[in-house]
């Protein structure tokens, strides 16, 4: 499955570049959808089936649909901008620095080990204490069961707090729209 990872990675990077470069906002949003789909298939190959499904359902299937919806409604004209300006030069320099930084911090040997990309290894480096689950251990219980077990035991408080935050945001949005409607 190694070649598939490289292929998907390439798709993700190319669509990410097109997200930034395309002059039409709608094509940018659609490129982001492609990036999300490519990343989610990488999750599937790395044995994170639940993350795969959630990534597509939540991001590609709901959040990005709303983005596309709004962009199409506002229908902005294509941007007119010079081919090369100092923003672009600065941006390219910054992304090169960031890429080199990530590569050195994650350690190139850890990412590619015996010619294989190791997602688990990268994860363990990023967060050594929490990455106690190998692929075999997760699959023995099932992906959803493992994640749910963690969410409702170890990370119960952050989980509930974040759901409360979302609720507040939703209530706030409802309040704002009603408030605006009264003034009309």
């Amino acid at each position: 499955m190694n070649w598939a990872l490289w292929l998907l990675g390439a798709i993700a990077v190319i669509s990410a570049i097109s997200l930034i470069w395309s002059s039409h906002a709608l094509y940018s949003a659609l490129s982001l959808v492609v990036t999300i789909c490519a990343l989610s298939v990488i999750f599937l190959i790395l044995n994170a089936q639940f993350l795969f499904a959630v990534q597509i359902i939540v991001y590609a299937g709901a959040v990005m649909v709303l983005f596309v919806f709004i962009i199409a409604l506002l229908n902005p004209r294509a941007e007119e901008r010079p081919r090369v300006d100092w923003h672009m030069v600065l941006g390219i320099l910054a992304s090169i620095v960031a890429a080199v930084g990530v590569w050195t911090m994650a350690g190139s040997t850890a990412v590619v080990q015996n010619g294989k990309i190791r997602g688990a290894v990268v994860g363990r480096i990023a967060h050594p204490s929490s990455f106690a689950y190998t692929e075999q251990a997760v699959n023995a219980h099932g992906n959803v069961q493992t994640i749910a077990g963690q969410l409702f035991t170890t990370y119960l408080l952050p989980f509930e707090v974040s759901s409360l935050l979302l609720l507040v945001a939703a209530a706030g949005a409802v309040y704002l729209t009603h408030h605006a409607r009264k003034g009309l």
Binding site: Q49, I57, A60, G61
Partner: peptide, 15 residues
């Protein structure tokens, strides 16, 4: 055959 088959179908139809 994935062990989240139901979510897989929902994900695809949501696209």
């Amino acid at each position: 055959h994935v062990n989240v088959g139901l979510l897989f179908i929902l994900a695809m139809t949501s696209l």
